[in-house]
Design a protein around this nucleic acid. Structure first.
Length: 279
DNA sequence: ATGTCACGCTTTGCGTGA
């Protein structure tokens, strides 16, 4: 099972890019963020023609999240993050797909910092931590995937000192992200690639893509049972270089079969990588 | 502060968010 997260930055503006990538990458599940489209403007028919069912929560101009699944629609479980009924921003959607609970997350950017937008980011992260804890407590297989708008460590940004004070690298925002890891979630990309750059975002400004000056903002967090099934992970960097690209590239991971359920074609169960193992 | 992209109203430029 291949699952990806992709901040598409306007799903209708970039629908050709999305369809091209789906055709090449062939993910089974896709979490999308920044649809920037109202519910009725979601390109349901075009995605169905490409073989993907979908659940989504749109919003005009800003935000908007979706989950795609190949060969049938996901089963919607939530369309908002618990903890603040007054929060009307479309930043969270959750659904069951192929025996896994999948959340598509668009965490607030938080700039300018400090300010009300940064306070909203921290509060949103606290709500996410609480909900994530309740999901872990169920023991169900869960993936929390999306644009976290946090570069977790200094290794996740091309030149840390240039971004000091920015909400993407703020110590409090980072502490809330690392709190998820400490609570038992596995950062899928770092588990497979423990060191080195893994940029998922390059700003449109100042030649950031041609100079490969990026940040790692998009993450797939796995519950313990799923972390044991992790086989591979990566970033489809080439997508960022195409005409009319989003400022993010898709990040993805591959999970092996559920233990005891099935085996690889060779008849031998695949061994998942140990945590921190070099590949 | 800068720079780039896109949207929608304030509407054919500009304020805003990222």
């Amino acid at each position: 099972m291949k699952i990806a997260t992709f901040n598409i930055n306007n799903i209708n503006k970039r629908l050709p890019n999305l369809l091209d990538w789906l055709g090449q990458a062939q993910p089974d599940v896709v979490c999308l963020q920044e649809l920037k489209a109202e519910d009725q403007a979601f390109p349901e028919a075009a995605l169905a023609a490409a073989g993907y069912g979908a659940v989504w929560r749109g919003q005009r101009t800003w935000n908007g999240v979706a989950i795609l699944s190949r060969g049938g629609a996901p089963i919607l479980t939530r369309q908002s993050l618990p903890g603040d009924p007054s929060d009307g921003q479309a930043r969270y959607i959750e659904a069951a797909v192929s025996g896994v609970l999948v959340a598509s997350i668009y965490l607030p950017n938080g700039n300018p910092n400090p300010g009300p937008k940064f306070a909203y980011k921290l509060a949103w992260q606290a709500r996410l931590a609480a909900h994530a804890a309740s999901l872990l407590a169920t023991g169900a297989p869960v993936i929390l995937a999306g644009d976290y708008n946090v570069a977790p460590t200094e290794a996740d940004i091309y030149q840390p000192h240039h971004w000091a004070g920015d909400a993407l690298v703020d110590p409090q925002a980072r502490a809330r992200f690392s709190g998820l890891i400490e609570a038992g979630w596995t950062d899928g990309l770092r588990a497979v690639h423990p060191t080195g750059p893994l940029w998922t975002f390059w700003a449109y400004m100042r030649q950031r893509w041609p100079n490969d000056k990026g940040l790692r903002l998009d993450h797939l967090l796995l519950s313990p049972g799923l972390a044991d099934r992790l086989i591979d992970a990566g970033v489809d960097r080439q997508v960022r270089g195409l005409e009319g690209a989003s400022d993010h590239a898709p990040a993805w991971l591959v999970l092996g079969p559920e233990r005891g359920k099935s085996v690889s074609p060779g008849g031998r169960p695949k061994r998942p990588p140990r945590k921190g193992e070099q590949r």
